[in-house]
């Protein structure tokens, strides 16, 4: 355990823990758009920057991204200095120039008093803030079906060569974890469409309700050794089946210890 000072308050933290996790635990409101526990810290949105110093640094201060900075004993952290607020304002201002119509960005910017961008709006705005969560989560799950393409301001998220991604299984992790809901998908009938590729959704054998895609189920049974027939029913039917079979045992043995 180490002890750090956050905004003047002594806080204990686990060694090697990232600063952002400690700040979140302390209920300090630090915005972060590119952070997710499932993936490695990335440090792209620069909103979670905090100011750190140490007694022995003689007043020298440094601004670091808290999502990437491991806590160490004796750190003195300030989270809302004027410089930091100014920096966050500028970044949100820049975000608004890129994503002027994105509610999530608008709300966050409004919290910092930025109602409208002071810069020139980009010609063809969309909701993607290029936080990289979708691609990193896809990598983490082992599919790597999508990736960031191009450099600099022309960067975007796309499947290989912008064709239907061959490695995608349609799990929707990218779309569900997108902080601005930019990634669109449709479930029509028992067909799911995402990234320009169509997937067949499995249906519950009894009720016909939709579960996961056939590709995802195949992946799980192949790589994670889950019997294929587990995917024949959805969770509700599974529970009913369980109740029936356990009921039979219960009648017979009068007690079911788990």
């Amino acid at each position: 355990m180490v002890t750090v000072t956050i905004n003047g308050k002594l806080v204990r933290a686990k060694e090697g823990e990232m600063l952002l996790a400690v700040l979140r635990r302390e209920k300090i409101d630090i915005p972060a758009l590119c952070h997710h526990e499932a993936v490695e810290p990335y440090g792209a949105c620069r909103l979670c920057m905090v100011e750190i110093t140490r007694k022995e640094w003689d007043g020298w201060k440094n601004m670091v991204t808290s999502c990437l900075y491991p806590v160490a004993d004796g750190l003195i952290i300030q989270t809302h200095t004027t410089d930091l607020i100014e920096l966050r304002k500028t970044i949100l201002d820049l975000y608004l120039a890129r994503c002027p119509n994105t509610p999530e960005i608008q709300d966050l910017a409004a919290q910092y008093g930025v109602m409208q961008t002071s810069y020139e709006q980009v010609a063809d705005p969309n909701d993607c803030i290029l936080c990289g969560l979708c691609t990193r989560i896809c990598d983490r799950m082992g599919f790597s079906a999508i990736s960031a393409v191009n450099r600099g301001h022309g960067r975007e998220i796309a499947p290989p060569l912008k064709n239907a991604p061959p490695d995608c299984v349609g799990c929707l992790a990218c779309a569900l974890n997108c902080p601005t809901n930019y990634i669109k998908y449709t479930d029509i009938g028992h067909t799911r469409e995402i990234w320009g590729r169509k997937f067949e959704l499995l249906r519950d054998a009894k009720t016909g309700q939709l579960t996961i895609t056939k590709e995802f189920a195949e992946y799980l049974s192949k790589h994670r050794v889950i019997p294929q027939d587990y995917f024949d029913l959805n969770d509700e039917s599974h529970r009913k089946e369980t109740a029936l079979s356990l009921g039979k045992i219960a009648i017979w043995s009068r007690e079911v210890p788990q």
Binding site: Y42, G43, A44, C45, R46, T90, I91, L94, Y95, A97, R98, Y119, E120, L130, G132, A148, N150, R151, G152, H153, G154, R155
Partner: peptide, 17 residues
């Protein structure tokens, strides 16, 4: 602007502006 990797916001958006 054209050589920035585009990962972080200040560089990608800031230099562009």
């Amino acid at each position: 602007v054209s050589e920035s990797c585009g990962k972080c916001v200040p560089c990608r958006e800031g230099l562009y502006q």
